[in-house]
Amino acid sequence: MILGIGTDLANIDRIAGTLDRFGDRFRNRVFTEIEQAKAERRRDTVGTYAKRWAAKEACSKALGTGLAMGISWKDMAVSNLRSGQPTMQVTGWAAERLQEMTPAGHEAIIHVTLTDDHPWAQAFVVIEARPLADAESSLDS
């Protein structure tokens, strides 16, 4: 079952301006060390930051809160599988909110997709609740 859906469209040039103006202060407030390392290794550093910004906004919307109610930017972090597929991890208040909205006997799966076409970066986040294997087998009995 779908628990939440979020999307965001970020302007890469606006993120570039914010990086130019605030530099490390912005990076360290919004992005985890892993996200920063990934962006700094990429040829399109700013586009990488913009996609991750959009993913955090989209995740907060899928959680049903926006960036209110105590969620920190760093409570939502994008990393990549070896295949390159982006993944979203949540900690802190975002993890508490996710647990709150996940029905008993289910696990929450966060799906994220990112894209960019200058000057836009876009992210979609879908939060799915899947029945746990133990809960599923007890239903079959």
Rank of each mutant, 00 (worst) to 15 (best):
M1S: 14
I2E: 09
L3P: 07
G4T: 03
G4C: 03
G6C: 06
T7E: 09
T7V: 15
L9C: 08
L9F: 08
I12V: 10
I12R: 00
I12L: 04
I15W: 01
I15S: 00
I15T: 02
G17A: 14
L19T: 01
D20C: 09
D20L: 11
F22S: 12
G23M: 05
G23A: 15
D24T: 14
R25T: 08
F26N: 00
F26R: 06
R29W: 07
R29H: 13
E35Q: 06
K38L: 14
A39L: 04
G47A: 10
G47T: 02
T48W: 00
T48Y: 03
Y49V: 02
A50F: 01
A54G: 07
A55S: 07
C59H: 02
K61M: 11
A62K: 00
A62D: 00
A62I: 01
L63A: 01
T65R: 06
G66L: 03
G66I: 03
I71P: 03
W73C: 05
K74L: 12
K74I: 13
M76G: 04
V78W: 02
N80G: 14
S83F: 06
S83G: 04
S83N: 13
G84F: 03
G84E: 09
P86E: 08
P86M: 07
T91Q: 15
A94L: 01
E96N: 13
R97H: 10
E100C: 14
E100T: 15
H106V: 06
E107N: 13
A108Q: 07
I109W: 12
I110E: 02
D116G: 04
H118S: 12
P119Y: 05
P119L: 07
Q122N: 12
Q122F: 12
A123Y: 04
F124I: 13
I127P: 01
I127Y: 06
A129E: 00
P131A: 12
A135S: 15
S137L: 12
S137K: 10
S137T: 12
L139G: 12
S141T: 07
